[in-house]
Amino acid sequence: MNFTPDIRLFSCHYTCQQTSAMDDNGLQHLDFPKNISINRVVCTGKIEITTLLQAFEDGADGVYVVGCPMNTCHNVKGSQRAAKRVETVRSALSELAVEPDRIKMYHTPRGLHHEFIEAAHEMNDTITELGPTPF
C-alpha cells in the first residue's frame, strides 16, 4: 500500500528552535520527513491532552512529542508532565482499541541534534507500518 502518513510533531522550543529558521529545503537537507508537521511550543509541559487528541480529531495518523531530557528540562518538570500526558493518551487509545504507538514521547538533547531527526524517522516508520488512522 502506498501510504504517506500525516504525522504531527509537538516539540519544545529549546529542542527544535533551529528548525524555525529553516525552510522546507533546509529541513529536507537534514533528511527530516516532509510529511511531519512541526508545532513548536514554549515547553512540552504546556501541551494539554486535548491538544494531542485534537490532532487525531483533525486527521493525524500519528502524533509525537519531543521534549527535553527527563531531568534537565529548561522548565524543570515540563517534559515529565508531557510524558505523563502522552501516556494518558496512549492509555485512552488502548481503551478505544487503537494502537497506542500512534503517539509517543521522545526526550532529546536541547538543540537540533541527530536524535531529533532519528525520532522523526522512527515515528514515520512506525506509523507507516500501522497504516491510516482508524478515526
Binding site: 494539554e48 491532552i49 486535548t50 487528541l53 485534537q54 487525531f56 480529531e57 485512552a92 481503551e95 478505544l96 482499541a97 487503537v98 482508524p134 478515526f135
Partner: peptide
C-alpha cells in the same frame, strides 16, 4: 471542565471509529 473537554474529544473519536 478540563476532564469534560478530554472526554468529549474521546467520545468523538470513539464514535467516529
Amino acid at each position: 471542565e478540563r476532564e469534560a473537554d478530554i472526554l468529549a474529544s474521546l467520545i468523538r473519536l470513539g464514535l467516529k471509529k
